[in-house]
Simulated assay, not measured.
Amino acid sequence: MSEHHDSAAPPAPLAKKPKDPLHGITLEAMVTELAHYFGWRELGEQIAIRCFQQDPSVASSLKFLRKTPWARAKVESLYLFMKREQARQR
């Protein structure tokens, strides 16, 4: 007996994917919007990382966040919070 594998079927995880609220939003766009909304000083208080507190810039922040998953997760979380706040204010 030979095993039959149906290679035409899509992989299970791709079949039903929950909607990701961050889908299509770049890290650069998140950092830029957060800095504009909060200002660098407040952003550095919300997320206490040096790239937001000392000589902050989008470029330096991206360099750090791309290699630091825990910090990126904090940025994503604050970004979603900011979007909820903006929606409530409308």
Rank of each mutant, 00 (worst) to 15 (best):
S61W: 01
R66I: 00
S57N: 03
F38Q: 05
E42W: 02
M30F: 07
T32N: 04
K19Q: 11
L27Y: 00
H23F: 13
F52W: 00
R88D: 07
K17D: 05
H36F: 07
S60H: 10
I49H: 14
D6R: 03
G24K: 08
G39C: 05
T68V: 08
Q53K: 14
Y37F: 15
L27V: 09
K67Q: 12
M1N: 12
I47Y: 05
P69N: 11
T32F: 03
F38S: 01
A73M: 12
S57A: 06
T68S: 14
E85C: 11
P10D: 10
A59T: 08
M82N: 07
P13I: 05
D55G: 09
A8F: 06
L22A: 08
I25N: 02
S77G: 15
A12V: 02
P56V: 06
T32M: 02
K74A: 15
H23P: 04
G24A: 07
M1R: 05
Q86Y: 03
K67D: 06
I47T: 03
A29G: 00
Q54K: 13
C51A: 11
A29K: 11
R90H: 13
A71D: 04
A71Q: 01
K67N: 09
E45K: 12
A8G: 10
T68Y: 11
R50M: 06
Q54M: 03
I47E: 07
L14K: 12
D20W: 04
S7W: 15
R90K: 11
A8V: 05
R41G: 00
G44E: 04
K74Y: 08
V75I: 10
F52E: 06
R90Q: 11
L78G: 08
V31A: 00
A12M: 10
A59E: 14
